[in-house]
Design a binder for these strands. Sequence first.
DNA 1: ATTCGCAAAGTTTTT
DNA 2: CTTTGCGAAT
Length: 776
Amino acid sequence: MKDYAAELTSAQLAAVTQVDGPLIVLAGPGSGKTRVVTYRIAYLLDQGISPRQILSLTFTNKAAEEMQRRVQELTGLDSIWMGTFHRFCAQLLRRYAGLVGLRENFSIYDVADAQRVLDAVLKARQLAGTHITLGQLSQAISRVKNRLQAADGFQPRPGDPVEAIVGKVLPHYQQQLLAHNAVDFDDLLLHVVALLRENESVRDQLDQQYRYVLVDEYQDTNLAQYTIARALSMRFQNLAVTGDPDQSIYGWRGAHPDNIRDFERDFPGTRVVRLEQNYRSTPNIVKIADQLIANNVRRKPKSLFTERAPGDPVRLVRYLDQRAEAEGIAETIASGIAQHGRRPRDFAIIYRINALSRVLEFALQQRGIPYQLVNSLEFYQRKEIKDVLAYLRLLNNPRDDVALQRVFGAMTRGIGDKTWGRLAAQAFETRLGMVECLVIHGVPATIHKSAATALRAFSATYHDLQKLVHLPVAELIRQVLLQTGYWQELQQSNFSDDRDRCANLEELITAAQQFDQNFSESSGLEEFLQRAALTSDTDAWGGTNDRVSLMTLHATKGLEFPCVFAPAIEHGILPHERSDHDLNELEEERRLLFVGITRAMDWLQLSYVRRREFRGRAGMAVPSSFLLELPREEMHFVDLAGTTNAAPGTLDGEWDDETIWLDAEVHEDEYVDALDPDLTPTDLGESPPGARTSGLIMTARELSRGPEAPPTSSGEPAIDPDYFQPKMIVRHPEYGLGRVLTIHGSGRRRTATIHFFTLGRQHTFYLAHSQLRPLG
DNA sequence: ATTCGCAAAGTTTTT
DNA sequence: CTTTGCGAAT
């Protein structure tokens, strides 16, 4: 048995050795949370508890893998069930499909698949043509589902147009999914909730089977997930959750904000253990993280501390543009590897939105630095991959009409809307899936000759392939590619990107081969499809490599790296423009940066640029207001933007608010000239029709508004910056009337973001300098 | 029914 | 800059 006391602090030990009863571990970043969880599992095993009785639920696949790895390192065991809620639920549903109206071979629809169903429902219900997009609708449905508002009992909030449509559509949408023997992501949870609620014996049986349930990243679970965890812990209340409210970054996905309070309510006598000491990062990093997060109002104060030796200051770098930024980062990494004994895997570049990865990738490629994109949507989103997977899904689940639609659209010739409609009509009458119907009843008489031939050909191929579903998945994929002619078509194509497609398909086959080796059981195809649906990245299947990691801030959760770069800390990107109208969302953005900063162990660089390209257009970037909230002593400012009044690097180390914040405006005319030489003075006054600003970037034209109206505040008395408050209506001599959205900072540093009504856009001002006046 | 071409629109984060 | 959508021509 391990000497637990010797390897853990007293707080950690308390969390590890509490075997029975409900437990909450509130763990700050880097406080050894994963260590606590893995040691706790080891301890449970030492107490004679069987690995089969332990269930460890995580939020992402990545976190699950990491946990699995570390548990194996510690105990040598890999037989403990670890994975995401969604994967756990998918497996349960395979077993109990009949109890919720599914068959065990159900398909899992991704967002795009689900939207197709939604689209069909809208059209059938004559509800198409509202200004509400499919995306909004499916998001709203997702919210409703995650809040456990029952499908038929859902009451739309009065006056909410989106919810009104959700109310009309939801029952039919659900019915269609069931008819296709399919579930969307949220249904995986929802069906399990229903299963556990309606079948006490099943619930009790599972409760007994999984006597020890661990939930990681508890702050990001939604109501459905919490309900599941609780249902498995009624008789045996050995539910241990770990989390950190300051790292809650999935509110937009229905994470239940008060779940920690709920937990204590539902499980009286819960033991709460707090872990506040950080073992991961240097004091500088901890300090700026701590000070940043202190700006969140809706938060229980908590302070992080560390006893690590002081390290390098955190770097804040201003680059000229995104290319310079990417190259600068690549350069720094290269020299870190060449001169400071770093490995590529020591570095991570983390950003707010996936779109930012492109330049960075390019710069790394140029220098031959190996990198990996984590969770980029790429692989399983690619057309050719989705096409083949659709065919596989169709073989596995003949009711999957959405898959058939995709197959007809991409892998067969000669079948169009008309034929589709006629086939659908017959399928509807016979209450079968469309392929089922085709196989059983043959081609409907209403279908024209050429289309009928195409259908018969498809039908014959499908029939042949159906006999092969028990082959190893890799072999099955090969057969699908060959027999449908898809492979041949791509091979003979003259388009160069079809070459890439073939390569991607080969990669899929390789992944399938790996899968076949690891899972030689008979239900191979189903399991393979499930994995394909529930993992978003390829390297989840492969090993860990010595590469620089590129990922979004969301994807970094639970990870740590010696050296971290966080580029594009700019207004509109972080905080994201769609988040800064709402305090809750803004605070979530701040937590996101907090999570990002605290991934760094030894070395951290934040950066922003003066000029960022967006939709092909260059525009001025505005530094994020979060930068103003960071302490200065722990940081080192480096200006590489090459401004006219300061040679590159001369501002090293010294910076104040003007340096990072106002400078972009001071030099704006110079940039107008640089960006748009054809701009004539008459252009300057009005914005061209249709020119919208996202708030992300100011265009040259918008910037040019500035110098036309030099500050006229000479005669007017200054207004106390503290006078301005959110929601206040204000007037600006240049922009007109607007409403204060958010306020940041205090004193001289206090800034306000104003939404201007007539402009339909927003600007951020430094209140001590601004020409803003309260109305009246 | 398919394909090609151009125009418009839209870009958060994940299971 | 991409991707998606729509309309016309084959």
